[in-house]
Amino acid sequence: MKTLKEAKPGETVVVARVHGKGALRRRIMDMGITKGTQLFIRKIAPLGDPVEINVRGYELSIRKVEAESIELV
């Protein structure tokens, strides 16, 4: 299973499923990361975490721990 955590900066990926539960999962989905959404990995923060991605035309910051729960196609 490939997750968003493994994606490299400059890659464009597609979401297969959001794992986890409760507030965090809902938050990820509320921000527009849902099944079939295209994500562009823009960069990794200077200290190695979090990751900046472009989703639905805007920039979003997400930690690697959280990115791990986003399964990619």
Partner: peptide
Amino acid sequence: EPAPFVMELPA
């Protein structure tokens, strides 16, 4: 658990 850090970076 650590708080989620899913945050918009506004233009």
